[in-house]
Nucleic acid binder design. Structure first.
Lengths: 157, 157
DNA sequence: TGGATTATCATGGGATTTTACGGAAGTCAA
DNA sequence: TTGACTTCCGTAAAATCCCATGATAATCCA
């Protein structure tokens, strides 16, 4: 199975076009897609990206359409309404809508980081991602130091 | 079953290419892989290498993509964003990304050690690995002298 | 057995292809 | 036409493929 792995930093040109990393494109093609679905991350820091399959799974998970129920997981609705499906053009690029770029603090003419997450990926302002990653690493380390202990004593892995 | 055993030291050429030891290549083929997945060891000293199965298991364990949860197990995210799947080329070589080489203190044009660990292997700066090995041996010796005895000897994992 | 022949392997150096990315020309609707 | 978007083409750098070489290990055969 193909997974979205690793991190690639690409340039957003002044028209707002970005090359989707070729590895990520291959994964999409492997899954049988020629489009990507984008939507804001739940806390708005970045942009979530995936194939249409993930959207379908999500819809299934939240129960699909039920005209009798008034409240479905409300964020899921917002998510669907914010999501957009983008075609990857002949040169492997997509055009991320301006408001999404602004929300994720990515400037046209600047750079953005494509971050693999396995079955999906995210698009970040590179600096913001670096900061977040550092945080996550520290959290992991302190958690390990705190009590994980487990084996003979070496903290190597 | 085939295991990654022994240690091989190969040269990293100036383009960043390294021959994967032929024994290790055979093991990979035996397991049904034509690619290797690399990611930094948890403490950043070296590079971990395994087959794609490990990544897939990890993804399954963390439950896959859920846009509704603010952050899933953060170490898993860091791992996916740092990991990379590399194809072994026709000559049995891989191209390790530059930043990984730097983090592991391996210079292009220098050497690196492929260290078997059974169902996975690691890639080290040869000197760093030698030092670490010596340390582990001393630790084991003093522990045996102290009386513990117990398992195979190394407390590595 | 021992010496010659033949694989296999690690490694170097081109040559070719791919990729990211800029710009120009074409398309379409208002 | 104007502005927004799309398709097309050119380029430089990087990744990948292809073949040559030397070294070592395996094989063969008188």
């Amino acid at each position: 199975m193909a997974l979205f792995l690793s991190t690639y930093v690409n340039k957003v040109d002044k028209k707002g076009r970005v090359s989707v990393p070729s590895r990520f494109r291959s994964v999409l093609v492997d899954k049988g897609f020629e489009t990507v679905v984008l939507f804001p991350t739940i806390n708005g820091d970045a942009i979530d990206a995936c194939g249409m399959d993930v959207m379908e799974n999500l819809l299934e998970k939240i129960g699909g359409f039920d005209p009798l129920s008034e409240d479905r997981e409300s964020y899921a609705d917002v998510l669907m309404s914010d999501a957009i499906e983008l075609a990857v053009d002949g040169d492997g690029r997509i055009m991320i809508p301006l408001d999404m770029l602004i929300d994720a603090d990515i400037k046209a003419g600047g750079q953005c980081a494509f971050v693999g997450r396995g079955d999906s990926f995210q698009i970040w302002n590179p600096d913001a991602f670096a900061a977040r990653k550092k945080l996550a690493q520290e959290r992991t380390r302190s958690r390990r130091a705190a009590g994980a202990g487990s084996n003979g004593g070496s903290d190597d892995e």
